[in-house]
Write a protein that binds this DNA or RNA. Structure first.
Lengths: 197, 197
DNA sequence: TTATATTACGAACGTTCGTATGTTTTTGGC
DNA sequence: GCCAAAAACATACGAACGTTCGTAATATAA
């Protein structure tokens, strides 16, 4: 059989690489991550870095996966206890806003979505898949809100999701570009107007 | 004195380069524009391309300037005849939405804003300056709307501008990433909810 | 016509890119 | 302690990067 501990070690290094790449990509974009710079920052050789993934594109996909995982753990996972519908939705968006405001980090997935919106390929596909999942989540909760009578039955849920997304995008821009300390506050105010509390 | 005709010739080539770079940057980002590829597409040498600007950064700034000019001609310039306030504002945003929907082009300035939001330098400064100008324009019109009684006097104009910006960003994403044909429609619907018609 | 800028060119610079190939070090199971 | 597997290494590759140089061609001004 194959060795065990080495697998663990590998995973640890992989994680280190991915986290470093994630930090790098937050500043320079996912395409702006280079193996050489990554190796320098990690004190490794280029071959040692890319050996874990094979190609740069595979590394990009791994970074994207990690970002999605982090987002899920940080946002929807924190509101699983909330009542489905408007309450859970408001909670999720609130968590998202706070997440973005942390360290003026903004939203990595949103940035990558913009970066790859005109670049066909596996990365773009993965971004779209992740965003679709998130969109489905929102529509699910909006549906629950309608079912429980929080919204009128003829509410245009797609329209509402569109506008909620807009609030999040405006928040991301305010945080990342303008370092606006009021971003989260404005976001919550906009949210309150869209979702009945 | 300096030669005259050559200046005209230079400007024509410069324009050609900038327009080609603008198209290229719409897909690959402003940093993704390379001198060599540009030269190939234009049937020129690399030196002939970069000679007009000196450095790649100067080229990027020129492209950004051109994009700003194009935006101004296409959006605010078209509504100078409209009544100041909500009407002009609604007209401007409507033009913007249509502009974005054309060829699924989206908004170049918005994309570049995301691309450079964490990259200090002249390009980032220019992006922020352009966005600030646009923001000031919106706040001006919102102020006019308050003055003319279209909005209550205690309206939070910054909040309203924030939410309007969110609608535009959501539209850009819907157009560029999802190629959503309903983007402009959704945008107008959201706009109508924010601005009294 | 002559002198001066301007424009674009070909070629090369040093650097960095992503990737591929062996070799050495470390690891885990016997 | 020994051996296979895995990990990280050093090195090298061709290609592309932005930039610089000197030069030929062109257009303007005197």
């Amino acid at each position: 059989m194959s060795p065990r501990k080495s697998v663990i070690e590998t995973a640890a290094t992989r994680t280190r690489i991915i986290e470093c790449a994630l930090a790098s990509a937050s500043a320079d974009g996912l395409e702006g991550v280079t193996i050489g710079r990554l190796a320098g920052e990690l004190g490794m050789s280029k071959a040692g870095v890319i050996g874990h993934f094979g190609t740069k594109e595979a590394l990009q996909l791994a970074v994207l996966d990690a970002a999605v995982d982090r987002f899920i753990r940080r946002v929807p996972a924190r509101v699983v206890g909330a009542r489905p519908g408007a309450e859970r939705l408001a909670g999720a968006f609130g968590e998202w806003f706070d997440y973005m405001a942390d360290d003026h980090r903004g939203c990595f997935l949103t940035s990558v979505a913009t970066e790859f919106d005109d670049r066909p390929g596996p990365v773009r596909d993965a971004v779209i898949a992740a965003l679709s999942q998130w969109s489905a989540y929102i529509l699910d909760e909006l549906g629950a809100a309608v079912d429980s009578g929080e919204f009128p039955r003829d509410t245009d849920l797609d329209q509402l999701a569109f506008e909620l997304n807009g609030v999040a995008l405006a928040t991301a821009q305010a945080v990342q570009l303008h370092h606006d300390p009021l971003a989260a506050t404005r976001a919550r105010r906009a949210l309150a107007r869209l979702l009945p509390s």
